[in-house]
């Protein structure tokens, strides 16, 4: 175990090409998925927070429930969509990074919708009367709330990133864990552990933790900056 950890640090320190290729692909897939999920999820969350329409309650329950969507189920759904016989089969996306991005987007979007809805609903309660008195449009209200809740929404995005980066089942199913093509950190850790190659598994685990720490630290620093007196 000690040897494995020492070897892991060595791989990180020397910038092992294979290791960084996997890290790079992982970040590209997860960050793209989170960005897409935010594009879809933040406006939806805001609308769910402030609009009143029949079925809103059911939609809120559905999105809250989908936060717990099992990754393998999301993977299965995307697999069925992208497989040769599926509706999107002709696009030939299965076993590509794009398929992995789609699968992670499916997993992360409900998290973004549900958490952002709660954040924005709380703020809307505070802002509602003022914004209505200004005669603001619904779109204007949504944009105002999204902007003013930006720091809390960053935390929401971070939760989404955590879900995406740590996920194995869905990307394994639609990506196939193909070396140099769709191999990401989590699938590699699973594979290398099963092969008994603990050094690279531990190394990737450390990188994964380092990324989580860096992102959280950056967010905390940003919150600290915004918390003291100066606002944009």
């Amino acid at each position: 175990m000690g040897d494995a950890i020492a070897e892991a640090f060595r791989l990180i320190a020397v910038g092992d090409a294979a290791l960084w290729e996997i890290v790079s692909l992982s970040l590209r897939v997860s960050l793209t998925a989170v960005a897409l999920a935010c594009l879809i999820g933040l406006p939806l969350g805001a609308l769910l927070a402030i609009a009143r329409f029949p079925g809103r309650g059911a939609l809120i329950v559905a999105t809250n429930s989908l936060m717990g969507l099992p990754p393998v189920l999301a993977g299965l759904l995307v697999y069925l969509l992208l497989s040769r016989a599926g509706p999107l089969g002709p696009l030939e996306l299965l076993y590509t990074p794009t398929a992995m991005i789609i699968a992670q987007t499916v997993l992360v979007t409900p998290i973004i919708v549900a958490l952002s809805r709660q954040v924005i609903a709380d703020m809307h309660q505070e802002y509602d009367e003022q914004l209505r008195s200004m005669g603001i449009t619904t779109t204007g209200a949504v944009l105002t709330l999204l902007y003013d809740a930006r720091l809390s929404l960053l935390t929401v995005a971070l939760a989404g990133f955590g879900r995406a980066a740590a996920e194995v089942g869905a990307v394994m199913m639609v990506g196939g864990n193909i070396n140099h093509v769709t191999r990401v950190m989590t699938t590699t850790i699973a594979l290398e552990t099963s092969k008994g190659n603990l050094a690279i598994a531990v190394g990737l685990g450390l990188v994964l933790m380092l990324i989580a720490l860096t992102v959280n630290g950056a967010l905390m620093a940003l919150r600290g900056t915004q918390g003291v007196a100066r606002h944009v």
């Binding site: 802002y127 009367e129 003022q130 209505r132 008195s133 200004m134 005669g135 944009v232």
Partner: peptide, 29 residues
């Protein structure tokens, strides 16, 4: 109308200001 409401401005007893700078609040308005 909702937008015609702008002809009648209201200031509440407890000011409800956006989480922005002084200038940011005015720019938004």
């Amino acid at each position: 109308t909702p937008t015609g409401r702008r002809r009648i401005a209201i200031v509440f007893q407890r000011p409800m200001l956006l989480r922005r700078s002084v200038a940011g609040n005015l720019r938004h308005a």
